[in-house]
Lab assay of single mutants.
Amino acid sequence: DHDVVPEDKFQETLHLKEKEGCPQAFHALLSWLLTQDSTAILDFWRVLFKDYNLERYGRLQPILDSFPKDVDLSQPRKGRKPPAVPKALVPPPRLPTKRKASEEARAAAPAALTPRGTASPGSQLKAKPPKKPESSAEQQRLPLGNGIQTMSASVQRAVAMSSGDVPGARGAVEGILIQQVFESGGSKKCIQVGGEFYTPSKFEDSGSGKNKARSSSGPKPLVRAKGAQGAAPGGGEARLGQQGSVPAPLALPSDPQLHQKNEDECAVCRDGGELICCDGCPRAFHLACLSPPLREIPSGTWRCSSCLQATVQEVQPRAEEPRPQEPPVETPLPPGLRSAGEEVRGPPGEPLAGMDTTLVYKHLPAPPSAAPLPGLDSSALHPLLCVGPEGQQNLAPGARCGVCGDGTDVLRCTHCAAAFHWRCHFPAGTSRPGTGLRCRSCSGDVTPAPVEGVLAPSPARLAPGPAKDDTASHEPALHRDDLESLLSEHTFDGILQWAIQSMARPAAPFPS
């Protein structure tokens, strides 16, 4: 592969990997390779389809078979030569091979799209000592099968071997295949498990690692696999990028399955594409389908809103127990993405979901129960707010008499603000006073009005108090039968009158 990737590009890729991570280095090298001529790309395919690569990765054979028959990708048995050289000459001794072996032994695996480039050397060096003999053996194999790289107009793939297949390693990572398949204008990513390549439709969760975000852009890794992070704060999961590491605690105790298979379609829109997988259930989501939507993949363990709600429900009964003089119970939860139609709101002032922060849900004790107040519409209280300059209440639009249902020339009671006709409430011909108009209920007259088809109010509507207090003497005590009587009149003013009279009014101040 030294004929494909020059030394300066190799060093530039290593520097970019240390600065921005393996995914960015892979993407940059792939983009550079696509700008080369067809001879360089053909050399790339020839390096990929060597015999030892085909033996190690069985899924490469179907890719090789898909090439046109007129494309010669065979390799000479006596060494490598550029395709432009007409004579089959043995190339001179390859010093770059020693360079590659020494550099890969030092860096474990470079971040390139060629056999030198995919593992994360920093994480491997940190986690190597417990498994040094086995990992050293794996390093000797890295130059042979560490990076199976493929690129063409139909298929483009980048393979990364790992030393996680050490025997006896619980939940060992089998390997990473960062794979971009450009077929019919689409893009897919796969993962390699035990020599087999699994596409998103049959993606397997190998051991402790999972394909957290099938994305090839942005600074985030394709698999949430930063070796420096180790395990999740809650004892979460091992990262795919942690090559040759000792077994780590796999999943939280509440995880239903340690080796679950995540779905390959969004649980909201039932469509495929780039998904984020939940650590607590097999569901996966688009970032845009979450509520609120996320802009980037959160670091650490992530769970959907259903799993978060289940966790909150487990903690909430203990938080609601009476604990005198104790601060509110704080339950730190990872930043969760909410699927459509589901929402768990945190306290005000918290950062938005999706940031690399930890939301704190506070379970406050329930407030003391209070008697429910009568629910009145805002339009129902409008007549009470229509007060004239002299303190006389004006008529609201649409006000109707509670007896006849007519809204023409209605009066407004100064005591309960109900609309009424003087002739309907006082049919006996009582003279109307000039000021202080009161309806039949507030004036103490319980004589029913002779209106055909309208039920008369119940005599129990009024329960006047002592006459010594004029204001308190007109406080009506309405009961269920009074409400039914008012409802039978089918008037809004009657219902409003009952609601206003049912509310307690402050006692009249004593004259000074």
Rank of each mutant, 00 (worst) to 15 (best):
G241D: 12
Q242A: 08
Q243I: 15
Q243G: 14
Q243P: 11
G244E: 14
V246W: 14
L250S: 10
L250F: 12
L250V: 12
L250Q: 07
S254I: 11
P256V: 11
H259Y: 09
H259V: 09
Q260E: 14
K261I: 05
C266F: 06
C266L: 06
D271H: 12
G272Y: 11
G273M: 04
G273P: 03
L275G: 07
L275E: 10
I276Q: 08
I276H: 09
R283G: 14
A284I: 08
H286P: 14
L294Q: 14
G300E: 08
W302N: 06
R303S: 10
S305F: 09
Q309P: 07
Q309T: 05
V312I: 09
Q313I: 10
V315N: 11
E320S: 12
E320A: 11
R323L: 09
R323F: 12
E326I: 12
P327S: 10
P328C: 13
V329S: 11
V329N: 14
T331H: 11
P332Q: 09
P335R: 10
R338W: 15
A340K: 10
E342Q: 11
E342F: 15
G346N: 13
P347M: 14
P347C: 04
P348M: 11
G349A: 08
G349T: 08
A353M: 15
G354V: 15
D356F: 04
V360Q: 00
L364F: 10
P365G: 12
A366C: 12
P372L: 07
D377K: 03
S379A: 11
P389N: 12
P389C: 13
L395P: 09
G398C: 08
G398L: 07
R400N: 12
C401W: 01
G405P: 03
D409I: 01
D409P: 02
V410P: 12
R412D: 05
R412S: 09
C413W: 01
T414G: 10
H415W: 04
H415Y: 13
C416T: 03
C416H: 04
A417Y: 03
F420V: 02
C424S: 01
C424E: 02
F426N: 13
G429I: 07
S431M: 01
R432Y: 14
G434Y: 04
T435Q: 13
G436D: 07
T447G: 11
P448M: 13
P450M: 14
E452V: 09
A460P: 05
R461Q: 06
P464I: 12
P466L: 11
P466K: 07
H474Q: 08
P476I: 13
L478K: 00
L478G: 07
H479F: 13
L483R: 03
T491L: 01
D493S: 01
Q501N: 15
Q501G: 11
M503D: 06
A504K: 03
A504T: 14
P506I: 02
P506M: 03
P509R: 03
P509A: 13
